[in-house]
Simulated scan of single mutants.
Amino acid sequence: MIVIDREKLASLPLLTLAAPAIRDAYIAVTDGRANLPPVGYLPLIGRNADCHIKYGYIEGDPIFVVKIASGFYDNPARGLPSSNGMMVAVSAETGDVVAVLDDKGMLTDLRTGIGGAIATMALWRSDTRSVGIVGTGTQARVQIRALAALSDRKLHFSVWGRSPEKVAAVLADLADLELAIEATTDLEALCRQSDAIVATTPSKEPLIRSDWIAPGTHITAMGAHAPGKQELDIALVARADRLFVDLSEQCLDHGEFSAAARAGSIGEGRCVALGAVLSGATKGRRSDGDITIADLTGIATQDIAITRAALAALGLLGRAEGARS
């Protein structure tokens, strides 16, 4: 069994290498190739933390993947990252553990960033140039890096946070990208001025109000991936012209759309699978005036996809295909 550390994984250009596989990971959910058991969720309420266990298999792959991912949301105040975890790649031929990717949450962050960028680019207006980023954590940074790596547009980013110091830190961390990027502490102004908005916070109460959102805006909601989290007010979700999900049962149970579903403002029939849009089976945005929202809770096929991409880049995928019989 091989253990691959975070430093080795960080040396790989996974933002671009893994993007085709993560795009296909959405499609696999809709075309019958994905086997996705329910997510394991462990809340550590007294510690402001949680742990998710996701696992699954894409038919025809040489491996399946079990992922443990934790979020300890007080860690930044201690000078530590909020995310941690690992991926375990197991041969689909023999059940041998092929490799443990001791990424300490980095692969989850990357696949979430790539998945968010793919959703945003699939659903934004054709003339989108201004992108608002809500939040100042790891995912805010990764979403910007992923959009910069995968989009061929000249984008202008605005980053919102309650703390000017934290917003400034995001801009400093992204200085190597030479992007058009600015800081703001005015969330309403960011929402009114952005063509597309990516919400990345672990907020437990709505931050973004319906009357701040103009027709034609796209929103990718990333932060509400566990019970009790919510970034958008219910009126905004109910008002949207098109609602998209990575996996409807997750989104309606504990994603951004769950509060609106519990209130009776939306039902499963309103939710369109993002994979069906990416495969061309259904339309995404129908007009430039549509308000579109994508609720992304994270799916195990994405973990499989980025693990497979990393193993292939390291020349290790053959270990799974040629595992002992």
Rank of each mutant, 00 (worst) to 15 (best):
D303W: 06
L110M: 14
R285H: 08
F72S: 10
T136H: 08
V100I: 14
V97E: 08
M87W: 10
L317G: 01
A175E: 04
S194Y: 05
A117W: 01
P215L: 13
T292P: 02
P43L: 15
Q143A: 03
D109H: 03
G113S: 06
P202K: 07
T184Y: 06
I208T: 03
A305G: 03
A18W: 03
G315R: 12
D290T: 10
I306V: 15
T201R: 03
S83W: 12
S70T: 14
V198I: 13
V97I: 15
L15Q: 05
G60D: 09
G137M: 07
D246F: 05
R324Y: 10
R78L: 13
V159W: 02
D24Y: 06
I4A: 00
A235W: 13
D303F: 05
M86G: 03
T108H: 04
A320Y: 01
P76D: 05
A238H: 12
P206E: 03
L147W: 01
G264Q: 11
L207E: 02
D211G: 04
A259L: 13
P62S: 15
A273V: 05
R308I: 09
G71N: 09
V3R: 07
M222S: 10
I306E: 02
I53T: 15
D109I: 07
R78F: 12
S151R: 01
R319F: 12
A189D: 03
A168L: 00
G298Q: 04
V98N: 08
A25I: 06
L107W: 01
I114A: 02
E231C: 12
I266D: 04
A175P: 00
H254Q: 06
I63P: 01
G269T: 11
I181E: 04
A119I: 08
N35H: 15
L150G: 01
H218T: 11
L311Q: 08
E59W: 11
D211Q: 10
M222F: 12
M222R: 07
I45N: 15
Y57H: 13
D102M: 07
G60M: 12
V65S: 01
E178V: 12
M222Q: 09
A273C: 02
C51K: 12
G32L: 13
Y41E: 14
D31F: 15
A180H: 04
V134I: 10
I68M: 05
S11R: 06
P76Q: 11
S194K: 03
E165L: 00
I63S: 06
G56F: 13
D50Q: 10
G95D: 05
